[in-house]
Design a binder for these strands. Structure first.
Length: 244
DNA sequence: AACAATGGCAACCGCCACAAT
DNA sequence: TATTGTGGCGGTTGCCATTGT
């Protein structure tokens, strides 16, 4: 009753900081009353942990921090507090925000450019694209590991309904997310990506089968290679794979 | 210059886990 | 064992600044 909400004023910040410096924050619920703040304890705790704590690091995230977030998110998912615990001076809220506003988009763009680079399907005579088509009646092209894996899951469980949220989850799934390289950190498409020969191709069955040069044995891309390998096995033909 | 659309971020909300009673 | 209080977490909202038309 009568509690203030919304943005904190500098005066409120000052009161909270000096009270915590003097008495600590043993009991958040009791704190605002003791400090003379018209805020709920929860609001005080959030303000302190996300903004006023002396060990908070302000300013833009460094490239190393962003990379750490991406790697940890790959391992931990949306466990922001666990991720924050590994990045000194950053809060879970801040990391969550930077993920949703910057990194998610970056990853999406990067994935599409990488998918475009290693897009499948085979123009060599050894590859039987017809059988690929037959194995997938709805679409005659498999454009990405993500798309493929979702389609395969629908094969194993045709009744399964996928919501858009689920699809988005698949889209951002890192199962086939390759190691990031320099191009990831650019907001612009690289010249190479922009000129990617299959970017505008209409007949995607004619797309050349290539692995990106950056792929190295032992990288996470190996998982997707296994995937493609299995797919070709299913399709009944196997293209020549490059040596590493 | 005015308005609309978009993005970034701080703050709030609802839920959950856990400890104390 | 059930209830209550508290802190913590992740998802969401809403404000404000910036950008586009």
């Amino acid at each position: 009753m009568g509690l203030k909400k919304g943005p904190w004023s500098p005066e409120e910040d000052q009161i909270l900081v000096s009270h915590i410096q003097q008495y600590g924050h043993g009991n958040w619920r009791a704190l605002p009353k003791q400090a003379g703040l018209l805020r709920c304890g929860k609001s005080c705790r959030l303000r302190w942990t996300n903004y006023l704590r002396p060990d908070i690091k302000r300013g833009n995230f460094t490239r190393e921090e962003e990379e750490t977030i991406i790697n940890l998110h790959e391992m931990l998912g949306n466990r922001w507090s666990a991720i924050a615990a590994k990045i000194p001076g950053r809060t879970d809220n801040e990391i969550k925000n930077v993920w949703h506003t910057h990194l998610k988009k970056k990853i999406k763009n990067y994935q599409s450019s990488q998918d475009s680079k290693r897009r499948t399907i085979i123009s060599t005579p050894k590859c039987d694209t017809k059988s690929l088509e037959n194995s997938n009646s709805e679409q005659n092209i498999v454009t990405s590991p993500q798309q493929c894996s979702s389609e395969m899951s629908s094969v194993t469980d045709p009744s399964m309904e996928k919501t858009s949220a689920k699809n988005e989850e698949m889209e951002y799934s890192s199962e086939y997310f390759p190691q990031i390289d320099e191009s990831f950190w650019s907001d612009e498409l690289s010249e190479e990506d922009a000129n990617c020969p299959d970017a505008n191709i209409e007949d995607k069955t004619q797309v050349q089968f290539t692995w990106p040069e950056s792929v190295e044995k032992g990288s996470k891309v190996d998982d997707s290679m296994d995937f493609w390998y299995n797919l070709f096995i299913r399709a009944g033909d196997m293209p020549d794979l490059p040596e590493f």
